[in-house]
Design a protein around this nucleic acid. Structure first.
Lengths: 369, 369
DNA sequence: TTGTAAGCGTTATCAG
DNA sequence: CTGATAACGCTTACAA
């Protein structure tokens, strides 16, 4: 691989001049600049980024640290980050940690020196404090609700509002007993969604007892298993709010096996609006979260700090979560809510446009936003 | 951030000794090693990877270059790569390119010097030659079928076999006219799947005319739009093979709207086995591709070359694609084929095990593998 | 506008 | 077993 020396020698200039051509080209005469560029192209020269970052203290890369890379939510977050990073000419280093706070710390250590900033989603409060300490010396943006660290930026989804809107919607349809399939205890998003469920019930004057709560872990099988609890509950709830779509899908599947009709016998609402929801039978009413946008926003919030290598300030941003009414909740279908063809998905080098559906606002009554 | 000098000074040793403690600890006395480690921990020192890679010519990172990060297939590939890379203590840099061969080249250029090896999925033949040239000087593994470059490793999925098995299965169920929703022309995977469809039809003595082919681009909306073509075809095909699951889902949805019953009026088979397939109504018969394993295998094929920084040899590996018979093809359901609860998906820090379903082999007759 | 030279934080080589 | 010291490839004062 050619180095700056090779180019300098070949072009008959000093290495400083070559360097300038690739950095502050204005300091170099147009003639020599084009000459040097020609030589560089011929030698297939490109500045070595390790050497460069050794002296500039900038890597032009950001790290992304997630609890897992499983499922559509994370995949869309990464995609959003990648999209925004490409536009800003930043590289993206992804990493996942599957276990303890321990590994989160070692993951960060391994990333150190390779990145200018970090986007991280911490699973629980314990990991949160570990990150917070690190964030006092390094630009960090958290993808978590309720981030308390004053030195981190933080983005989150309107978990509470979305859950509240979903449950209020069910209540407005006349449901008096509305169950919940929870996400993991301690998971910050899950806790917020549970809180939204509880408050919406209370606001509607309904029972919000823990007898109506079933434990879950965001997996399809958790939703599947939750079905038994609801079917045997006395009295049986007429509606269930699931803390994410995967669990709603598992629940839907189990109810079909149990010959419980949805939405007639039991109305179901999910959370996240994964792409497939509209193609289920019945199509899934859910709360839309734009995970891709979350990633994009996170990168843009991080970037100024990454560029200046200063810790982030305590900026907070919340993305809206909007109710998408389909069939599983039993509401009358608003006309034109879902243009056919849906959100395009593709694999490979297709050329399909990415249609977005019209979407309902989070006001809980199905009116167009 | 503390440097090796700070640690050396504080520990009263030379920087060489500190370096040895972090690299070949055997060359240093146990006493000084622990002493140095203590100081390093106190100063929160960790070797700067840029400086390190400047002299070792190793980054301990690999690059992943994909046409897009959209959808479950890519997300699972990345997850597989990440899993394997973590185990090997390698970092993963992901990048996507959305356009031309041009951007693929510039993406590679930007990655240069930051990675020890590259895993790349090229969309078409043109990009293929650009990569092939690069691969003569750098370890590259292709995630593509029919890779011709002798200096690249290459992994692929048994697209042809899987498609053949799917279509043979439909033929064995008595279907005489079997349509195809194609993937993008020029896409290597799509072409192979189309070839499998064609050959299986011929082998069964059936018509494989292009009149039975409908263009598609792997998106749900392409599948949705394809429905109209099939419904109006004279005579109407009694079965359709879709080159991926997303298109099958779109097709399913459109057929429901058109009140064409699946599988009675039209049998449908997809390709990829995305997680959601089993929860559709009817559950989707498809060809299972383990994208996560594809990623894992790619990393393991690349790693020896990345470590030695030598171009890969022309190693080829093909992952099996196995038919998964569910309801959309209309075959009698084999007992015990799908244990309930399904493949677990999760978001967040859940604890669910990842159940795998029993699976049918690609021999096309539904017998257990 | 260009060149010279001093690092950036490591590892590798060679003496001791 | 340990210590000097020369790279690694680049950017950036400072000088010309």
């Amino acid at each position: 691989m050619a180095t700056i020396r090779d180019v300098a020698r070949e072009a008959g200039v000093s290495i400083a001049t070559v360097s300038r051509v690739f950095n502050q080209a204005t300091l170099v005469s147009e003639a020599t600049a084009t000459h040097v560029r020609g030589i560089a192209a011929r030698l297939d020269y490109w500045p070595n980024s390790a050497a460069r970052s050794l002296i500039t203290h900038r890597t032009h890369a950001i790290g992304v640290l997630l609890p897992d890379l499983y499922g559509e939510f994370f995949s869309e977050v990464i995609r959003g980050i990648d999209l925004a990073a490409r536009a800003e000419k930043y590289q993206v280093l992804v990493s996942s940690f599957h276990d303890s706070t321990e590994t989160i710390v070692s993951a960060i250590r391994a990333l150190r020196g390779r990145i200018d900033g970090l986007i991280v989603m911490v699973p629980d409060a314990e990991a949160h404090t570990a990150i917070a300490e690190f964030a006092t010396r390094f630009p960090v943006v958290l993808l978590n609700p309720g981030a308390t660290a004053p030195e981190c930026g933080a983005l989150s989804v309107a978990n509470y509002d979305g859950a509240y809107a979903a449950v209020a919607h069910l209540a407005s349809l006349g449901h008096r007993r509305i169950g919940l399939v929870r996400g993991p205890v301690g998971n910050l998003d899950a806790d917020e969604r549970a809180r939204g469920w509880r408050d919406a019930l209370r606001a509607a004057g309904l029972e919000a007892s823990s007898a109506l709560e079933v434990a879950g872990d965001f997996s399809e099988s958790a939703g599947f298993q939750a079905a038994a609890s609801f079917v045997h509950m006395q009295p049986r709830p007429s509606a269930v709010f699931c803390a994410n779509d995967y669990m709603a899908i598992g629940l839907l599947s189990a109810l079909r096996d149990a010959e419980v009709r949805v939405p007639q016998d039991m109305a179901i609402v999910g959370f996240d609006d994964i792409a497939i929801g509209r193609y289920l039978t019945p199509a899934l009413t859910t709360v839309r979260v734009d995970a891709c946008l979350l990633g994009e926003r996170a990168l843009h919030q991080l970037l100024p700090f990454a560029r200046s290598r200063r810790p982030a300030d305590g900026q907070r941003e919340q993305l809206p979560a909007s109710l998408v009414v389909r069939q599983s909740c039993g509401a009358p279908q608003p006309a034109l809510a879902e243009p056919q063809g849906g959100r395009a998905r593709r694999r490979g080098h297709g050329t399909a446009a990415h249609h977005r559906e019209d979407r309902l606002s989070a006001n809980g009554n199905g009116a167009p936003a």
